[in-house]
Each structure stands twice: as C-alpha cells, then as structure tokens.
C-alpha cells in the first residue's frame, strides 16, 4: 500500500467515524426506475425495435433486408465475424457484396460495414448489448460507417435496464449501444456518425 493510499484511508476513516447519524443504504423497489411507457403492449422485441428506432437505430429481421440496405446505401465492402459466415456473410456475398472475414486494421477505411455478434438487447431503452467475449474485433464495430450487431435466436431480450445489469455475470466488458454515434456539440445540432458508426443496425436472425 502506497503512502498516499494509507493516508487517504486514514483520513477517510477519521472523517466518517466522526459523523453522527449516517445515512442508511436505501432499499428500493425497481418499479421506481421503470419507464413503463417505453414498454408497449406488444412483445419485448417489438418494444426494443420501437425504442431502438426512436434512437435512430435500424432493427432488421432478415439478411435479405440487410443486403438490400447495404447495396442501396452504397456500402459495398465490409467485414463479417467468421462465426457469422454461414448465416450472414455468405448471403451478402451471394447478393454481390464484398465480404472479408478478417479485419485488417491497416485498411480500416476500406470497410464500409462491420458485422459482429450482439449478446442481447434491452426492450425498455432500445439498447443492443455487446460483450467482448463475443465481439470478434472492437475496431470492426467502430470504424465502419455501418455496424451490424447480429442477435441470435437464443440471445436474451432483457425487459429493463435492471434486468440487463443482473445478466452481466462474469462477462469482462459489456457495452450498451443505443443507436449510432452522435454529437450535439456544435450549436446543439444533432449529427450522427461522429467517430463510430453513422448507421447502427440490429439484425435478429
């Protein structure tokens, strides 16, 4: 323990032990946190899709839709997680898109789209959950203009933020992505695609 650490703890102990009537840790029911209006009457996936769209995200349900979107937007070349080759990558290749299964960081500007796995979604907020066990390359989810997070059929659709936090387990890094990268730094005007993706897609297989 460094001197700084030891003297800091000594100072903190002295301060807090002298406090009369310390505030207890409140117990609370999570319903106080629930934005129930964001959970519609339909399925949790439908709520997710509505909230994700409200944050400028694009929910999709078929690889064919994805191929059309990429082609129409001129996003013709990109990266795909090798584990998604069969279900996504090869379908896009058949549709005429150029797909690489290795992310070459020297050529980061050449990838117009990046396709990686999602580990779940959150209905209440329209959030895609990524984790670093499953994200094949962090850069592939950041540098391309279009990021596609692919949700497998068995991946969880969490109802609330609190549910999603409970599901962390021992996952090393969990990233919640709620729409494309954005800023309003210049005169409060909203611009999408600052550093990361300007298009954030969630494809549910």
């Amino acid at each position: 323990m460094s001197d700084t650490e030891a003297s800091l703890f000594a100072a903190l102990r002295e301060t807090v032990s002298g406090l009369a009537g310390r505030t207890p840790l409140p117990d609370y029911d999570e319903t106080i946190l629930l934005a129930s209006g964001r959970l519609g009457s339909g399925s949790e996936w439908e709520s997710f899709a509505a909230n994700f769209e409200a944050a400028s995200g694009r929910p999709m349900e078929t690889t064919a839709d994805l191929a059309t979107f990429l082609k129409e937007g001129g996003h013709l070349r990109g990266y795909c997680d090798p584990l998604l080759r069969e279900k996504v990558g090869s379908v896009l290749q058949t549709a005429g898109l150029e797909v690489s299964y290795e992310y070459d960081r020297e050529r980061y500007d050449d990838f117009a789209f990046g396709i990686t796995r999602a580990s779940g979604v959150v209905a209440e907020t329209g959030t895609v959950v990524l984790n670093d066990h499953e994200t094949s390359d962090r850069l592939a989810a950041l540098t391309p203009w279009v990021h596609v997070a692919v949700l497998s059929e068995e991946a969880p659709v969490h109802r609330t933020l609190s549910d999603a936090i409970r599901a962390f387990g021992d996952c090393p890094n969990v990233i919640w992505v709620t729409g494309p990268s954005k800023t309003a730094d210049v005169e409060g005007i909203l611009i999408e695609g600052v550093h990361g993706p300007g298009e954030q897609i969630c494809l549910r297989l």
């Binding site: 670093d132 094949s136 850069l139 962390f168 090393p172 890094n173 990233i175 709620t178 990268s181």
Partner: peptide, 24 residues
Amino acid sequence: ATAQQLTVYTQFINGPRASTQPSG
C-alpha cells in the same frame, strides 16, 4: 444531461483484455 433516456455508448469495463477476448 441531454434529455436522452440513455447515452449511446455505455461501457461496463471489468479489467484489461482477458485471454478469451479477441481484442482490447
């Protein structure tokens, strides 16, 4: 802060890259 329900990127970081992680 910005009247958003949630910031776009919310990261929960649990240490450096583990052997099971492809990057970081």
